[in-house]
Design a binder for these strands. Structure first.
Length: 464
RNA sequence: GGCGGGGUAGCCAAGUGGUAAGGCUCGGCUCUGCAAAAGCCGUAUGCGCGGGUUCGAUUCCCGCCCCCGCCUCCA
C-alpha cells in the first residue's frame, strides 16, 4: 500500500514517489519573525511535523528545511517602532519560535535558513532572471518578475489570471510595473526602511518575499523538491511565484508534491485580533494548558479540513491524553521487567492499521480510531486477567512506534520522596482504619501536587 | 464574479452503493472505608435541504441553502 497525498497542483490523491528514495527533500514555509507565532501558524507546523514523522516511520530519510522570514515590511516597521536594530528585534522572536516548537514537540528541521543570510543567493537568482529577460528594473528602481514570460503562472491555484477580479489590494496607478501582476523580486530602498538595506546591482534595497524561498530551497535542497508545504493562503501568490522564479532559473520542475493545510478557526469564528479570539501558544500556556494538549488538538484533525479550535476541544484533549497515560502506565506496570525487552518484534494489527490510515493522506482520525480501539481492547483483556506480561511489553513496543509519530506521551515524572513518605503514612493510617487521618494525608498529598488512587494493587500516584 | 475547502449525535470527527469508526461530554455498572481516578457497557432509524438514478444513497447525479478561505507579499 503506497503512501498517498492530495497534491494541490493536480487536486488528486496521488501515490507518493520521491525523486531519490529513501531521501525526501521537504521544504516548509516558516514564520515571519516580527511577532509571536499564533496557533494557526502552529497548526501548519504540526501538520508538517506529522508528515515528517510518518515518512520517517515508513523508512524515509527526511531532509527538511524551514525558512525564517526575518525581513519584510512588517518586520522592518515593527523593529523601527521598537527602536531596535532589525537583527536584535528578530532574534527575540526567533528564540520564542524555537521555544514554542519545543513546547509543541515539533521536530527540528535540519536547516532553518534566515532570509537575511541568503541575500547573495537571492541576488544571483535575480541576475539570472534578468539575464534571461524575465526580470526587469522599473523606474522605481525595484526589480520585477515579468509574468508574461511565464504562462504557467496561476496553474497551482487554478486561477485564470485574465478573469481575476481586481481587489483593493491591487493598486494599479502607483506602480511602474509593466503589468499589474508582475511581482517584486528586489525592492528598492526607501527612507521608511531605515538602515535595512543591502547593496545590489540594482542599487540598495532588499529582497522580495517570494525570492527568499526559491533561493533558500534551491540552495539547501537543490532544484527539485519532493514536497513543499504551507497553509492554503500561501498557494496564491506566494507558491505560484516560487514556482515561476525557480523553474525559470533551473529549468527543472520545482516541486513534485504540493501539500497545503486548511486554516484554523476559533470557536467557529475566523481568528482575528479584532475579534478577541487570537491566541499565541504562550497565551494558552498562561491559561494553564500544556504544550502537548495544544499539540493534540492541532494534530488530530486532518490537515485538509478547517480546524475549529475551542476550549471544549482542549478539555477533550486533556481527557483523552489522561486516558492514554493511564493505559501506558497500566501496561508498564503489568509488563514489569519485561518492559526491558520492549523492542521485540511484534505485529499488532491495530498498530498496523494506525500506520495504514496515515498512509492514506495522513488520515489522523482513522489512525486515532485504531489506537483507541487498541486501548479499549487491551484494557478489557487486562481487566479479565488475560494479558501476559510479555503481551503487555509487546503492546508497549507498539505504542512506542505510534508515539514516535504522535509525540504525545506524558513526560516522565518522578515522585518526590516526601510524597512517597506521605503515601506510606497514609497506607499505615488506612491499615489502622484511621479514615480521618487517611483523608488528611490524601489532602496533604494533593497539596503537594499529586492525586493518590487506591487500586487493588495498592496506591497509585498521578500528577495533578 | 472566478477558484477551492466544508456542512455526519451536545462538541470534535472517520467512513462506505447495502444499512453509521473513534475521542470528549452524559448515563449505568465495577472497583473503593469514603472518595477520586480508572475500567467496562450504553447513547445518531440518522449523515445541510429538495429532487433523481438504484432492489437499496449518508455515499452517485442535478438543483439549492449555509459556513470558511484565496483572488497579487496572512500558516
Amino acid at each position: 500500500m503506497p503512501i498517498r497525498f492530495t497534491d494541490t497542483y493536480s487536486r488528486q490523491l496521488e501515490d507518493f514517489a520521491p525523486l531519490a528514495p529513501p531521501l525526501v527533500r521537504l521544504y516548509t514555509c516558516g514564520p515571519t519573525v516580527y511577532n509571536y507565532a499564533h496557533i494557526g501558524n502552529f497548526r501548519a507546523y504540526i501538520f508538517e511535523d506529522l508528515l515528517q514523522r510518518h515518512l520517517e516511520a515508513r523508512g524515509f530519510d527526511v531532509l527538511r528545511v524551514m525558512n525564517l522570514t526575518d525581513v519584510d515590511d512588517k518586520t522592518i516597521r515593527n523593529s523601527l517602532a521598537s527602536g531596535q536594530r532589525l537583527n536584535d528585534f528578530t532574534a527575540i522572536y526567533k528564540a520564542a519560535f524555537f521555544a514554542d516548537l519545543d513546547a509543541l514537540r515539533i521536530k527540528r528541521a535540519q536547516h532553518f535558513p534566515a532570509a537575511t543570510d541568503y541575500v547573495p543567493q537571492m541576488i544571483d537568482m535575480i541576475r539570472d532572471l534578468e539575464a534571461k529577460g524575465i526580470a526587469y528594473q522599473a523606474d522605481d528602481k525595484s526589480v520585477y518578475f515579468r509574468l508574461s514570460k511565464y504562462p504557467d503562472y496561476g496553474k497551482l491555484a487554478h486561477l485564470n489570471l485574465d478573469e481575476l477580479r481586481p481587489s483593493g489590494r491591487i493598486r494599479n496607478d502607483d506602480y511602474e510595473k509593466e503589468s499589474i501582476g508582475d511581482f517584486a523580486l528586489w525592492k528598492a530602498w526607501d527612507k521608511a526602511d531605515g538602515d535595512v538595506r543591502w547593496e545590489s546591482p540594482w542599487g540598495p534595497g532588499r529582497p522580495g518575499w517570494h525570492i527568499e524561498c526559491s533561493a533558500m530551497a534551491t540552495a539547501l535542497l537543490g532544484p527539485e523538491l519532493d514536497i513543499h508545504c504551507g497553509g492554503v493562503d500561501n498557494i496564491f501568490p506566494h507558491h505560484e511565484a516560487e514556482i515561476a522564479q525557480s523553474e525559470c532559473c533551473t529549468g527543472k520542475k520545482f516541486v513534485r508534491t504540493w501539500l497545503h493545510c486548511a486554516h484554523l478557526m476559533v470557536e467557529g469564528e475566523k481568528m482575528a485580533k479584532s475579534a478577541g479570539n487570537f491566541f499565541t501558544l504562550r497565551d494558552l500556556l498562561d491559561k494553564g494548558w500544556t504544550g502537548r494538549e495544544v499539540r493534540y488538538v492541532l494534530l488530530t484533525v486532518n490537515y485538509r479540513l478547517p480546524l475549529n479550535f475551542t476550549f471544549e476541544g482542549l478539555a477533550g484533549a486533556r481527557a483523552a491524553l489522561q486516558r492514554l497515560d493511564e493505559w501506558t502506565a497500566r501496561l508498564a506496570d503489568h509488563a514489569g521487567e519485561k518492559s526491558e525487552v520492549r523492542n521485540q518484534k511484534s505485529e499488532i494489527p491495530r498498530v498496523e492499521a494506525f500506520f495504514a490510515a496515515l498512509d492514506d493522506d495522513l488520515n489522523i482520525s482513522g489512525a486515532m480510531g485504531a489506537l483507541f480501539d487498541l486501548v479499549r481492547e487491551s484494557n478489557a483483556t487486562l481487566d479479565r486477567g488475560d494479558l501476559t506480561p510479555a503481551q503487555a511489553a509487546a503492546l508497549l513496543a507498539g505504542w512506542q512506534r505510534v508515539d514516535a509519530v504522535l509525540a504525545i506521551e506524558r513526560d516522565a515524572v518522578t515522585v518526590p520522596a516526601e510524597v512517597h513518605a506521605l503515601v506510606e503514612q497514609r497506607q499505615a493510617a488506612r491499615a489502622a482504619k484511621d479514615w480521618p487521618g487517611s483523608d488528611r494525608l490524601r489532602d496533604a498529598i494533593a497539596a503537594a501536587g499529586w492525586i493518590v488512587k487506591d487500586t487493588k494493587d495498592g496506591p497509585k500516584l498521578t500528577p495533578r
